[in-house]
Design a binder for these strands. Structure first.
Lengths: 222, 222
DNA sequence: CCTTATAGAATTATAGATAATTTATGATTC
DNA sequence: GAATCATAAATTATCTATAATTCTATAAGG
């Protein structure tokens, strides 16, 4: 009857684990042991295994048969790969969605941008940013495309969290405003062009590792 | 020890079911009952459920909690959606792969095209076609992108099988040859342009339904 | 001192059993 | 005769148990 029962245990576990991986609570390479996870959620390991399969499909975990599953690791090459894929797919989605955008949707997107600018931490910024992208893309009405974009967003968010774990500086999102401006003018191609460039922008930040040395961390910022 | 043991039962089941769905042996909307599948493969239903999850992620099956899983159905809108996604992603892949293409790879791709032209049935044509695309795209060295393209290829193949179930007419693939020509010249952008148009071409064929009436069936042909 | 066996513990993968839910069937009423 | 409700059968989702594999730590041998 309740919404909780609409969902399987496996789905719930996979959502929670996905969130932990994305936010960095679970580090790249960490082992996911089915019995331990099962015990934590008060379930058996059958639904846990199904949750692992879903994480695998989303690219958040990798599984070696008989040797268990680990949190997926990533490097600069993968950050770039995801950025390029997002640019192509979000460009496509926006081109299809644009004719169906209403001024009330654009208004909501504007509010999401403001919310992003006012965010005091990465988590709420990421939420607002995703809301913006979803708002202007959803009207394309292409479910498979939107699902693919959503998975890529999760991975992007993971990069972001890993880079900006502790500190967070406020920024004003000029790209989002430029996109909205072009959309209001009905200038679809310019909006798409800005979006594609926006998504490909890769942030870079020096981070002190536990050993004291400094390394550069990269993340998709948009 | 053998390669068969390198793989889990779940993976084997999912591969075989995927093939049946793609080739049309399992029709859209058909129920997949875990106990029956388990019995057929001489396994229990735990690996079967995991196989279902994988099919779901590939977009070949849809699952409603507590109500079972069915072979995914599709319509013209989805054929178009997959075509557009493939155009974008294969274009991206080719642009990245082009600098790493060797003349021996292009030679292999040429042979795949010839094999396609000589194919007497849909299955072998599809195999050759996929080989062509994989050959020219793999050198992009972007595993996530290639996996996404591969899943889309499966869905495309499904459309193709559903449309051309019985008869198959021989065609010469001019697009593939044009792409190879541009690649040999080092003219990447033209190669990409032809590829993107090629993949978006949607074949159309009148098919007699069991009731005797005629309807148009659409498929991605490339 | 380092390498290689080996026994034990931990973990994965699968099977078998149970509870809960949905679908099908048939009787009953309007 | 159609619709509705109750009951039975089938099916899904989960849990508990077992077998097989991998990992770990320790000891024997070079």
């Amino acid at each position: 009857m309740t919404a909780a029962n609409e969902d399987t245990i496996a789905n719930r576990i996979s959502r929670i684990l996905a969130d932990r991986i994305v936010t960095g609570q679970l580090e790249p390479g960490a082992k996911l042991r089915q019995d331990h996870v099962a015990e934590e959620f008060g379930a058996s390991h059958v639904p846990v295994r199904e949750a692992f399969r879903k994480l695998e499909a989303q690219g958040l975990a990798v599984s070696e048969p008989r040797r268990g599953v680990r949190v997926a690791s990533f490097d600069l090459a993968e950050v770039r790969e995801v950025a390029l894929m997002r640019a192509e797919l979000e460009g496509l989605a926006l081109r299809q969605a644009a004719p169906h955008l209403t001024s009330s949707i654009l208004e909501e997107a504007e509010q999401a941008t403001v919310a992003g600018d006012n965010s005091r931490d990465v988590r709420s910024w990421e939420e607002a940013n995703r809301r913006f992208h979803r708002l202007i893309l959803t009207p394309c009405a292409m479910p498979r495309l939107l699902a693919a974009i959503d998975d890529l967003h999760s991975v992007s968010a993971r990069f972001l969290f890993s880079a900006w774990r502790s500190e967070w500086e406020v920024r004003t999102d000029h790209d989002h405003r430029a996109i909205l401006g072009f959309l209001r003018q009905g200038n679809i191609e310019n909006a798409v062009a800005v979006l594609e460039r926006h998504v490909q922008w890769i942030g870079q930040k020096p981070v002190k590792s536990p050993t004291g040395s400094t390394r550069d961390v990269f993340a998709i910022v948009g």
